[in-house]
Amino acid sequence: MTGAAPFAHLSADARAELDAWVAPDDQQEALRVGYLAHLAAHPDGVAKAGPPAHLTASCLVVDPPRERVLLTLHAKAGQWYQLGGHLEADDATLAAAAAREAREESGLATLTLQPGIVQLDRHELVGSFGRCREHLDVRYVAVAPEGVEHVVSDESLDLAWWPIDALPPESEHELRPLVTAALRHLG
């Protein structure tokens, strides 16, 4: 199968999730509307092989006491970020893609993914990202089991638990809004 067909279910799921999501502020609402317009214009807008700007799914992993977050030192970007990446045709949903990416990149077999979108983030890519030029990231949050050991994957230079009140300085400006949204989402 070629083109948008293998990803049609993910495109439909993304539209349904974004349609149902109540954005917490005007900036997030503008992104939500923009993502929906992008998907309407690009049936393959959830596929890495689709347009250079496409949806991705990521997951902020938190520890049970909600004091630390598990971050990856991204191999291509060279900065600490949440776990996540491109959708695959066999992902059942956008949320399932975020959970799969988190499990693959962390080595954590079990995560408790919380239902619902936490945050949207549209960002341009600089560096060696191939044909990818912009990610329209849909972000979720998951809680890791107590005392679980993570494993660095081939996609990361490193993985580490970071205190919520001491995020990596070089990426805090990007991570802080996500951490705040995730904690709010967790209640």
Results as ranks from 00 to 15, higher is better:
residue 83 L to W: 09
residue 25 D to N: 10
residue 57 A to L: 05
residue 75 A to P: 00
residue 149 E to W: 00
residue 44 D to K: 08
residue 98 A to G: 04
residue 169 P to C: 07
residue 154 D to S: 11
residue 32 R to G: 03
residue 106 S to H: 07
residue 35 Y to K: 03
residue 4 A to H: 12
residue 50 G to H: 08
residue 105 E to Q: 13
residue 82 Q to N: 12
residue 110 T to S: 13
residue 19 D to N: 11
residue 112 T to V: 09
residue 172 E to F: 01
residue 65 P to T: 02
residue 63 D to Q: 03
residue 77 A to S: 12
residue 91 D to R: 00
residue 182 A to W: 01
residue 67 E to F: 02
residue 126 V to N: 11
residue 53 A to E: 14
residue 113 L to N: 03
residue 44 D to H: 08
residue 93 T to C: 05
residue 113 L to D: 05
residue 89 A to E: 13
residue 175 L to R: 01
residue 51 P to A: 15
residue 111 L to P: 01
residue 172 E to M: 04
residue 33 V to E: 14
residue 36 L to D: 06
residue 22 V to N: 08
residue 162 W to T: 04
residue 100 R to W: 09
residue 133 R to A: 13
residue 172 E to N: 02
residue 106 S to V: 10
residue 9 H to L: 12
residue 86 H to I: 12
residue 40 A to G: 11
residue 65 P to I: 01
residue 18 L to N: 03
residue 145 P to S: 11
residue 115 P to V: 05
residue 69 V to Y: 07
residue 169 P to G: 10
residue 91 D to M: 01
residue 160 A to H: 06
residue 79 Q to Y: 14
residue 139 R to K: 15
residue 104 E to T: 08
residue 37 A to Y: 02
residue 71 L to G: 03
residue 13 D to M: 01
residue 15 R to K: 11
residue 44 D to C: 05
residue 54 H to K: 06
residue 99 A to S: 09
residue 48 K to Q: 14
residue 136 L to K: 03
residue 84 G to T: 09
residue 146 E to A: 14
residue 109 A to R: 05
residue 169 P to R: 13
residue 34 G to F: 01
residue 114 Q to P: 00
residue 108 L to I: 15
residue 31 L to H: 06
residue 62 V to Y: 00
residue 127 G to S: 10
residue 93 T to R: 02
residue 48 K to L: 15
residue 101 E to A: 14
residue 123 H to A: 11
residue 1 M to G: 14
residue 44 D to I: 08
residue 80 W to R: 05
residue 110 T to F: 00
residue 164 I to N: 04
residue 58 S to T: 10
residue 144 A to Y: 09
residue 47 A to D: 12
residue 16 A to E: 11
residue 78 G to W: 10
residue 183 L to G: 09
residue 91 D to E: 04
residue 7 F to L: 12
residue 164 I to G: 10
residue 9 H to N: 11
residue 123 H to I: 06
residue 77 A to E: 14
residue 116 G to D: 07
residue 159 L to C: 05
